[in-house]
Design a protein around this nucleic acid. Structure first.
Lengths: 195, 195
DNA sequence: CTTTTTATATTTACACTGTAAAGATACGAG
DNA sequence: CTCGTATCTTTACAGTGTAAATATAAAAAG
């Protein structure tokens, strides 16, 4: 029973995920409904029921895939980082983080928002845990393993907070967005290195 | 035209704001609808139209009031702070911030979320600007006025990020929530004091 | 190859939602 | 007292997510 073979449509499950991701990219988030996603996949509005128990379930799966791309983006940023110091690798990851949040703001909102509950999507729990582990390892190179869990929380809070304030347009107009990113990452890492 | 006198109901506008705030306190946010708020105020579902152009408008007003309470909470926390040092006052404000976000998570979500657009609610722009000014002043006592705008962004990002990760339950299970708050604030302030 | 079973998709239905327009109501001004 | 107008209710409409009944096509069994 393992392989999910297409019956009528041709792997509708995958198509729905793709259609949902696309919709989140190119229309206002309030317009992204289950029916709209079904429409984009070319099926009736009730078809998704056979692949996803609810809309939150579908969005949870999209969020989980988001975390996977997220981990990949940060990993390749760390690898491509020219410098060898742990601080600089962390800095590069921070920039990649902010960039990911910008380029995928709707999915990012799902990954960290309230509509998708952590409990109801096992895939989300798993992939977000992988993201966390990745960050904690990178932080451990700077702070040591002992302080890594708490320090990683500080890193995540800081970068996540900036992403959210930016995307919600809650930053005051008199701060330069680009300068803020660089300086924020700098202060965040400086705070890490304190005893 | 100034004073909004009650005609039939008795200052329904105020009642709707209160009912909305109460609903956001004691039911899941998905269940808080315009009709539910009207129900709680004891009026028909179309009555709010005469006081608020749309649901987002009503929520925007609630968010603006949230910012006012928010400013009050931080101010009184700074005043009641035993210590005289600027760092400690900022620390106290940070704790008050986290507490406010905990105790008013739904309203806090409106204040910083996507459903209420900054542009469509002038009261929100004003009250959030006041909050920003308050923070920037407190930060200036630590960093000096020159670096205050950027430094304040770092403070806000860090504390906001932690609030969001907490309320969305995105922190990994192996970190103690209470320890994280204290340590995060500590690292955040340490990062501030770097050149 | 035919029949049966099962997974998939559609249709229909229900209880909601936010918003808009038309009708009733009661207050304030003249 | 009358009139106008702001307020509230009723009704209506286009959406939504979800559930159940129905149709269809593929796979499995004979």
């Amino acid at each position: 029973m393992g392989t999910q073979k297409p019956y009528h449509h041709g792997d509708l499950r995958q198509q729905l995920l793709l259609a949902g991701e696309q919709a989140l990219l190119d229309m206002p988030i309030d317009d992204v409904s289950l029916r709209e996603i079904a429409r984009r996949a070319g099926v009736s509005h009730a078809a998704p029921k056979h692949h996803f128990a609810s809309m939150a379930d579908l969005l949870g799966e999209i969020a989980a895939r988001g975390f996977q791309k997220f981990v990949d983006a940060l990993e390749s940023a760390a690898e491509n980082s020219q410098s060898q110091t742990a601080e600089d690798r962390l800095f590069a990851m921070g920039r990649a983080y902010l960039r990911f949040a910008d380029d995928n703001s709707a999915v990012y909102g799902l990954m960290f928002g309230q509509v998708v509950k952590m409990s109801m999507t096992p895939a989300l729990t798993k992939s977000s845990y992988e993201a966390w582990t990745q960050l904690e390892n990178a932080v451990a190179q700077v702070t040591g393993a002992l302080r890594a869990p708490i320090a990683a929380t500080h890193v995540w809070s800081s970068v996540h907070g900036l992403s959210m304030l930016k995307s919600a347009r809650r930053l005051p107009p008199h701060v330069s967005l680009h300068a803020v990113e660089e300086e924020n990452l700098r202060m965040m890492i400086a705070g890490l290195k304190e005893a």
